[in-house]
């Protein structure tokens, strides 16, 4: 068994390890970085529970080797919350009851985050197509679509709202 050195960032934090080339990205995230928010569902490239962003692009982390990610920037669900405030997509799932058991939710939200960055004003149909690689066996998707629309609206409003007045430089020091 030969190991190989890899380094990547996950949610901006650097991680480096000597790993077997056959280690899947999802196992690197869960077992090397100890970030267990990314779930393993089907393990056969079908369900999308393991979805993470690779350099901003959503992918199924059960179908990538960690060695392929050398130098990459990975984003997982743990990186969505900022300074104690939920990401608009997380808030949407909370407000619109976008989850029941919650197993698909991390992957569903990562897909939604990347999708809304490309399409800030989507139709319901566009959302359904975007999440067609993420399976939910509880909700029937209606509330998930509502949750993503909630986040889209919130992000659009944040874009158009006048910027908060900047604090005087002295206050930061």
């Amino acid at each position: 068994m030969t190991t190989q050195h890899v380094q990547m960032t996950i949610n901006g934090q650097p991680y480096a390890a000597d790993i077997e080339p056959r280690l899947l990205l999802v196992h690197f995230i869960r077992e090397v970085a100890n970030l267990t928010g990314t779930h393993i569902g089907c393990d056969t490239t079908s369900c999308g529970a393991c979805t993470v962003l690779v350099n901003g692009v959503p992918a199924k982390s059960c179908t990538l080797f960690a060695v392929q990610m050398d130098g990459a920037a990975i984003s997982t669900v743990e990186g969505l919350e900022q300074n104690g405030a939920l990401h608009p997509v997380q808030e949407g799932f909370f407000e619109e009851h976008g989850l029941q058991c919650g197993f698909c939710t991390p992957g569903m939200m990562m897909t939604a985050v990347a999708f809304l960055a490309q399409n800030p004003n989507p139709t319901d149909d566009e959302i359904r197509r975007a999440i067609s690689g993420n399976l939910c066996r509880c909700t029937g998707y209606v509330n998930i679509v509502k949750s993503i629309q909630y986040a889209a609206k919130k992000q659009r409003e944040a874009q158009t709202a006048p910027a908060a007045p900047a604090e005087p430089a002295e206050a930061i020091r």
């Binding site: 959503p58 992918a59 199924k60 179908t63 897909t111 993420n134």
Partner: peptide, 9 residues
């Protein structure tokens, strides 16, 4: 082909 996430790679 497959689904949108698979198509990204």
């Amino acid at each position: 082909v497959a689904d949108p996430l698979v198509r990204n790679f």
